[in-house]
Design a protein around this nucleic acid. Structure first.
Lengths: 218, 218, 218, 218
DNA sequence: GATGAATGAGGATTCATTCAT
DNA sequence: GATGAATGAATCCTCATTCAT
C-alpha cells in the first residue's frame, strides 16, 4: 500500500457491462475508450456521439453497447483509467524521488500531471465539467474527490513541514488550483506561457502555499 | 446534449436580437435572463432548454426568441452582465480599500468574488465550461480573457512589491486558481470547508504567490 | 363592353377586410401590396413573412392585419390587381391595334404581357405556383382561369381565321404555353435568349398554332 | 411554409446520406420516395413534412433521416429518378419509332411524357416550382436544364427539316410550353380537354412551331 | 457475439395571428 | 386606428438506445 489511497470499487450499474474475460473483449473495450478520446480530442465533445465513437473505434454501435451499458459508462471507465494512470504516476515519482528536496518532488509531480493532461486535454476538460455538474449525478465518486483524497493522505504522511492547519482544505485548494491552471493553459494556450513556465509557476504557487519556508522562488 | 453544457458551433448573432424599447421589454429580458439562471441553478444545464427557460421566465418560447437570436445569445448576455458586476465590485472594493494593507485588499476582493459566485454558482460553472472550450470560438472576449486582462493591469499598477517576473503568467495563474477553487467549493460543498476558511485559504494562496513577504499567514 | 371579359366579383371572405373608404386607408393598402411585391422580388418568397412585409411597407403587423384578414388575402389582392392590369393592357393594345395584321396584334399582346411579367417576375411565379396548387384552395377563381376565360372570348370574337376546332382547348394551351415560356425565361435567364428573341419565338409559336396560314415566319 | 413548396436555402448535402447496402435499405429508400410522392399527390405539398412522409412511408422520422440528409434531399432523389424515367422513355420511343413520320415520333414522345406526368402530377408540379426558383441554387443540374439539353441535342441530330434558326431557344420554348400545358391540364382538369385532345393539341403546337411544313393538322 | 437499421422522444427555431395599450 | 409584444403550434433534425438478423 502506497499512500493509503483509499477508494471503493464503486457503482456497478454505470460501468462496464461485462468484465472483459476474453482477450478480444479487452481489446475491443480499449478500442472504444480510445475511440472516445480520439473523437473528443480531434472533433470536440459535440461530435462524440455513440455512433461516431463506435465508428472511430472500428466497431458497430451494437458492439459498443455490448461493452458499455450506456454512453456515460464510457466516461466512467475513462475516469477510472485516468485515475489509475495518475495514481501510477504519483507512485513512480514519489518512490523514485523520495530523497529529493521538497521542490524537486513537487516539481516532478506537477510535471507528471502536466504530461497526463497533455496527452488528452479534452478528456480532462470533460472530467472537470463532469465534476462540476450542478445536478449531482449518481456517479458516486467524482474524479476529483478521489484525487483529493489521495492528496490529503499524502499531505498527512509527508515528512515535510506543512504550514497548513486544515489539511483537508489544503488538499482541496491545491488540487483545484493546480488542475484548473494546468488545464486552462493547455486548452487556451495563452501566449507567453509555455509548459516550462507553467510548471515553474504552479510549483511555486503550491510550495509557497504549503511549505513553512519557500524562499527559493524562481 | 451531453457532457454538461456544450455550446453550439455558430455564433452569428451574439447579441440581443432587438431590445424592444419599451419598459415592458426590459423587464421581459431580465425575466428571461433570470429564468435561465434559475433553471441552471435548480435543474442543471441539461434542463436549460429554451422551452424550459421560457416557461420558468413566465413567457412563451416565441417571446424568448424575440429577445434573443438563439439560445447561446442568452448565455452571452449573462456573461456580459456578470462581467459588469465583477467589474463594478472590483472598482468599489479597490476604491474603498485604497489604503488598506495588501492582505486587506486581497481579502476584500476575494470576498467580493465569493459573493458574486455564491449568487449564481451554476452560472459561473457555465462560464468556466465556456472558458475551457476546446474549439475556440470567435467569441471576441471570453469571460476569462476579459477578467485576466483586468487582473493583469491591476498587478501592473499595484504599488505592492510583486515578486513575479512574468505578470501575464501571474494574472493567468491567479485567475484560474482562485476561480476554480472558489467554484468547486461552492458546487461540491466539501465538508469542513466553509466560506470563511475558503477565503482565508485563497487569500493566503494568492498573497504568498504574489507578494515579496507574506509572513502574516494564518 | 370590350371582349366580353366576364368575371364575377368573387370571394369576399379572403379579400380585403374593409373597403378602403378613407384616403389614408387606400394608401396603406397599396403600401402593403407593394411591400409584398418588393419583398418577393428582392428577398424571395421565404422572406415574405407578414412581419417583413409590414416592415417594408412601413406599417406595423397589426395594421397589416387591419387591412387583410390573413396572409393569403394579400396574395388574393395582388392577383386581382394583376388581373386588372392584364385586362387593361389587353384592352389598350387591341383597341389601338385594331387594324394591324394578325401578327402585329399578337406581337403587341405578347410584348404587353412580357412587360407585365418583367415588372414583377417573382409575383407571377407565385401566381403560377398558386395556380398549380394540388390541394385546390377555396380561392374561387385562380388567376389563370380568369385569364383563360378572357382569351377564350377573344378567340371567339376575333375576326381572324382560327384553324382550331376546340377553342376552349386552344385558349388553355396558348395561355399555359405563353406564360410558362415567358416566366421561365425571365426567371432562369437562359443565355442566348433575350427579350426580343423570346417575343419572336412566342409570337411564332402562337400564330402557327392558331392561324390558318402563318407562312410569314421571322 | 407558405406559397406552396418553398425549398430551404441550403443545399449542402444534396445526396442520399448513406445508402445502407443491404436489401432492406433499398426497399426503405424506395418506400420513402414513394411516401413523399403519395403525400404530395394526395395531401398537397404543405402536408409533405418529414414526419408525415415518414409516417406514410411506414418508417420513423429517424429512419428517413438515415437515408436522406434533409428534406430537400428527398426531392433531389425524386428528381433524379424522374429524369431517368424520362430519359428511358425517350430512348425507347425514339429507338422504336425511328422510321415513323415526324408527327408519329412527336406524338409518341408527347404521349410518353403525358404518361410520366400522369403517374405523379404533383411531383412534376413540384419540379416546375423548383425550376422556377427565383434564387438560383447551386443545384448543379436543375431538372429542366437537363431535359432542355436533351431536347436541344435531339433537335440538332434530327434529320427532319427544322425551321428554327436558334435551336437553343427552340428547345427552351418547346420544353416550357409542353410541360406547362400538360401539367396544368393534369392538375386543373379543365372541362372539355381530355388526354387525347391534349396530345393532339400539343403535338400540333410543337410540330407547327418546328417543322418546315406541317400542313397535316387536325 | 457482432451488426447496423430502426426507433422516437426531445430540442431549437419560425411565423401567422391576436390583443392590450 | 395603429402598434408591436406576446403567443404557441408546427417544423426540421439529432442521437441514445434497441433488436432482428
Amino acid at each position: 500500500m502506497r499512500f493509503g489511497f483509499e477508494m471503493s470499487k464503486r457503482h456497478e450499474s454505470n460501468t462496464t457491462r461485462k468484465g472483459p474475460k476474453q482477450q478480444r473483449g479487452k481489446a475491443t473495450l480499449e478500442a472504444i475508450l480510445d475511440g472516445m478520446i480520439r473523437v473528443l480530442e480531434q472533433e470536440g465533445s459535440d461530435a462524440a456521439t455513440t455512433s461516431r465513437v463506435a465508428e472511430v473505434a472500428g466497431v458497430s454501435v451494437g458492439t459498443l453497447y455490448q461493452y458499455f451499458a450506456n454512453r456515460d459508462a464510457i466516461l466512467d471507465a475513462l475516469q477510472d483509467r485516468e485515475f489509475e494512470r495518475a495514481q501510477g504516476m504519483m507512485g513512480r515519482v514519489l518512490t523514485r524521488g523520495a530523497y529529493g528536496s521538497d521542490r524537486e518532488v513537487a516539481r516532478a509531480v506537477i510535471e507528471g500531471l502536466l504530461e497526463l493532461h497533455s496527452a488528452a486535454p479534452a478528456l480532462h476538460r470533460l472530467l472537470v465539467v463532469e465534476g462540476l455538474r450542478v445536478t449531482p449525478t449518481e456517479r458516486v465518486q467524482a474524479f476529483d474527490l478521489r484525487i483529493i483524497g489521495a492528496i490529503r493522505s499524502f499531505l498527512g504522511l509527508a515528512n515535510v513541514r506543512i504550514r497548513r492547519k486544515n489539511l483537508d482544505a489544503a488538499a482541496f485548494v491545491i488540487y483545484q488550483a493546480v488542475r484548473a491552471t494546468m488545464l486552462a493553459c493547455l486548452l487556451e494556450r495563452p501566449p507567453g506561457l509555455d509548459a516550462a513556465t507553467l510548471v515553474d509557476e504552479i510549483t511555486d504557487l503550491v510550495l509557497r502555499y504549503l511549505a513553512e519556508d519557500a524562499s527559493s522562488g524562481p
